[in-house]
Amino acid sequence: RQNSPRTCQYVDLARLAHDSPFSVNEVEALYELFKKLSCSIIDDMLIHKEELRLALFQAPYGENIFLDRVFDLFDEKKNGVIEFEEFIHALSVFHPNAPIEEKIDFAFRLYDLRQTGFIEREEVQQMVATILMESDMTLSDELLNLIIDKTFADADSDKDGKISKAEWKAYVLKHPSLLKNMTLPYLKDVTTAFPSFIFNTEVED
């Protein structure tokens, strides 16, 4: 059997399932998704940044800071590619049943662009500028500053000009909709989304 989970020598499906909110069959179904994503440009069973971009934005080209951060957070080994185990680790955070602390932490690391341990005003400005460009939206500088001032007035409780992890936690617990992107409802029903895992499975959950 080509490309079945058992032929992937680096993967221990049972261990991955044990250490994540996924069952073995769900890990197998995610392997089907991983195979699809990891061979979309270079057929090497690794997700390259271009393949992540293609999956998320239907275009393999173009720089984007959010894409860079998502890729960096998935790429735990920092070797420029996402392996299956890293894929499962990161997607675990997005499971509807994952602890909210993990989602809060992931979102914080996502937005801490320079990885200083704080979300700084310049980072927020840069991210807002990126989303405006991405969506062809224009806002006056005055309104932009107002939005960022208001955000920091709410989130930066010690008024030091940057948002610490503790401040971020308090802020998102007050505004839980900010964690919406940290949950993928699809992950609750992944075996239905990728039924082809049935042809490769060796276990029945």
Binding site: K36, Q58, V128, T151, K180
Partner: peptide, 29 residues
């Protein structure tokens, strides 16, 4: 009239609208 001030979207709501932060794209190809 109007002690109500208009609601201002917060910066992270805006940022969260990026397509690159919506990983459901994985499942929608």
């Amino acid at each position: 009239k109007g002690s109500d001030s208009p609601t201002i979207i917060n910066a992270f709501q805006l940022i969260g609208m990026s397509s690159f932060l919506d990983l459901s794209g994985f499942f929608e190809q």
